[in-house]
Amino acid sequence: MNFAFDDDTEDMREAVERFARRDLADPPPDGALDPAEFRRRWQLAGKQGVVGSVVPERYGGSGLDAVTAAAVMEALGYGCPDTGFAFSVAAHLFAAVMPIAEFGTEEQKRRWLPALCSGERIAAHGITEPDAGSDTLALRTRAVRDGDSYVLDGAKAFTTNAPVADVFVVQAATAPGGGFFGLTAFVVEADTPGLSVGPPYDKVGLRGSPTADVRLDGCVVPANAVLGAEGAGASVFAGSMKWERTCLFAAYLGAMRRVLESTVAYAGQREQFGVPIGGFQAVSHRVVDMTLAVESARLLLYRAAWGLARGSEDEVAPALAKLAVSEAAVRVGLDAVQLRGALGVLSGEAETLLRDALPSRIFSGTNEIQKNNIARALGLGGSRRGTRR
């Protein structure tokens, strides 16, 4: 049992922190989307090797394992005050690029992965729908075989990176009512006729991550756009969720560590009644509780990453990691605001962390669904219909 990174991982983590502080320090004002500026920052992250970190080297990635990839994402979250941008990088990599790397044909990998790893192209994953969130087998988007093509019709919601994406991994029902084997994943280019993207959402948090609806109206894709095989969509999705629930949330560890450090510094400088507020037990104990939340979540996340790097099929560890990190992020955000008093509700990193943390309890499968999945793995309750996120 070793809780220290090896020298190469430590060097990589420090390099990403320096890069993020130097090149990603200024988030867009009010989260306003400037596609050109977003892509400029994205290409810088690509040159740093961040957007393709876990893809095998022969396809343009860095070939990192899950532990090192989590360390890189933690460093990005620490150095980049725009957690939304870090979230977009992680969603691109773990929810869209890794499915291509793990389930794609050799032709698909060579066609898509190099540009997705270099930062030249951006990927998005379309699965959530207005009426299908946690119950992913209830998708209404349909894919009908027509000779050597498929025709896709439907709508996706809450699609991260949709306004800037060049490539979409889209889940659709090829056998409606077919259960686990009724879904199929497709790789669809953004300029495919019939695919359209709505305006970016105005969100409470993660404002630096462009998100929008996607419509598919008679969108024709070739049969070789199928990812994996027809009917393998649920397996593709489950594979991406193991990566996402583990490595994506490492960005929140970095953001929490950054805010915790500044909170400790503030408590040591801010004086009331002639002494620094950090000398008051109510304040110091709250900071200790913040530290406990961050460090506990960090251990669970890296334990899940350790298992993923070794090919573990355990679904409990990623679910526990997602729960721990998201709940810790909300708590640390609340405490950071409280300890700053009135300054905490002004624009700054404390309120930003809190706003960015709120969605983390919902995406990648709500925390309630994670608890259901863990309980089921423990043998509690009967089986339920559907695949839950």
Rank of each mutant, 00 (worst) to 15 (best):
M1Q: 11
F5L: 15
R18M: 07
F19E: 11
R21I: 04
R21E: 15
P35E: 10
E37S: 06
R41L: 11
W42N: 06
Q43M: 14
L44F: 00
Q48N: 02
G49W: 11
Y59W: 15
L64D: 05
D65T: 06
P81W: 14
A90F: 00
H92F: 02
F94W: 12
A95S: 14
V97A: 12
V97F: 10
T105M: 06
E107H: 13
Q108A: 09
W112N: 05
L116N: 07
E120P: 00
R121L: 15
R121S: 13
I122Q: 07
P130S: 13
T141P: 03
S149W: 00
L152F: 02
V167L: 15
V170D: 06
G178P: 02
G179T: 05
F181V: 06
E189C: 02
A190C: 02
T192L: 08
P193H: 03
V197L: 03
P199E: 14
G205H: 03
S209L: 10
P210F: 12
A223T: 04
S235P: 00
A238L: 15
S240A: 15
K242D: 06
W243F: 13
R245C: 09
T246E: 07
A250D: 05
M256G: 07
S262R: 15
T263R: 00
T263H: 01
A265L: 10
Q272C: 10
H285W: 04
V288P: 00
M290Q: 10
L299K: 08
S312M: 07
E313C: 08
E315C: 06
V316R: 15
V316Q: 12
P318M: 10
K322C: 08
L323P: 01
A329T: 04
A329N: 06
V330F: 02
R331H: 12
V332S: 04
G333K: 07
T352A: 13
T352G: 06
I362S: 08
